[in-house]
Nucleic acid binder design. Sequence first.
DNA 1: CGCGCTATTGATCATCTGCTCATTACTATT
DNA 2: AATAGTAATGAGCAGATGATCAATAGCGCG
Lengths: 214, 214
Amino acid sequence: MDLKDGPRDPGANPGVPRRRLPPKERREQIVEGAVAFFAEVGLDGNTRELAQRLGVTQSLLFNYFDTKEALIEAVYARVYLDRLSPDWPDRLTDRTIPLRQRLLDFYTEYSSLIFERHWMRIFMFSGLAGAALNHRYLEHLGEVILRPLLAETKALSGDAADITMEDIWNLHGGIVYIGIRQHIYRMPAPENPEEAITRAIDKYLTFFQIGSDA
Amino acid sequence: MDLKDGPRDPGANPGVPRRRLPPKERREQIVEGAVAFFAEVGLDGNTRELAQRLGVTQSLLFNYFDTKEALIEAVYARVYLDRLSPDWPDRLTDRTIPLRQRLLDFYTEYSSLIFERHWMRIFMFSGLAGAALNHRYLEHLGEVILRPLLAETKALSGDAADITMEDIWNLHGGIVYIGIRQHIYRMPAPENPEEAITRAIDKYLTFFQIGSDA
DNA sequence: CGCGCTATTGATCATCTGCTCATTACTATT
DNA sequence: AATAGTAATGAGCAGATGATCAATAGCGCG
């Protein structure tokens, strides 16, 4: 099978818009493709295969990124950034809205953002690799989302049970685990997780004796 | 730095018992080392570095395993096998013991088995790689542990709430997430997770209106 | 003690992989 | 239509990596 048409086989990807994109666009395309590629095969995936999927030469990648490492950093940035909307801290502490509703709103939106194969897998790969961004993300999540949630819960709970961060992490982990099952382990999981999320939240609130009206 | 003593530098690992082990023992040592090594650096870790850590030549590895793939299979087997004690199905359904106690017993023992860095990381790496054993393990867990737990809970719960497998997975995920935070993300987590596990179980039982005596 | 078996080694191969760079050819501009 | 600027290519290097195999040397046995 010796293709002779067009510029010599740019990666067996016929029908894809050809060469000479504006640099910004090309860079964008590469990052996009790299996210999908590395999410699938892991961060050790090789640049030749990535290039082939993009329908582009491998050397082109190094016109846009000095090293593979730099490309992976761009992938991290793409995947991690803007995943936590900055207005959540305010919305989660808005006591004009029942806590249950705030929790439902947050986890419904958050899960729709992160229960996505590319994100889940890049996050896990980078976590296993000990990437600094992973640590920072989790610390940020803890401080900006979970710790305020602890305060909100404490404010409403009878102080019989002294709630700790571990209780919040348990709520969070139980929900996130849905996405892990689905995208990391590729096991069946509810395609629409809203009901499971609702149950998790109600289980949480019930234990800390918070009525659904509070 | 040219070592001249002993058989030529077997990997800069002085003081370690030397050469010519009985094959069974050597094989054991290699698998053990491979578990630790791959758990740390991932399944793409290279055989030369592994050999060096073992204080052994790289070629020796291929006397015991035909391919790197075969070695990794041995690692999987070592890590996955005997992780789920076969008597748990019986113990979890032993209604002479309160369900709360059964759950506490199970998750205390189970967490002490799996909240271990090597296991957690190999499990995650193999899950991401789509290893068949990973699937089988999770299906097995679901059928042999979690599904019976669903039945036990249903038997005791007021049938107001219809419990589903998702509720069980939520309990399970919330607990397992402790180990994920600790060993995958290397974030701080309670060194003794028993209290968090107890809370998770009580939260679960409370929601389904099961008294601590049942 | 000497010998034979075999666990272990060291050198080496073929391929893979990140990366470089001189050359090519697409496209905007005139 | 000709040209200049540069996006993209393709050949190729150096080092890494899985795997092979003949040679070596530790150890049990007579």
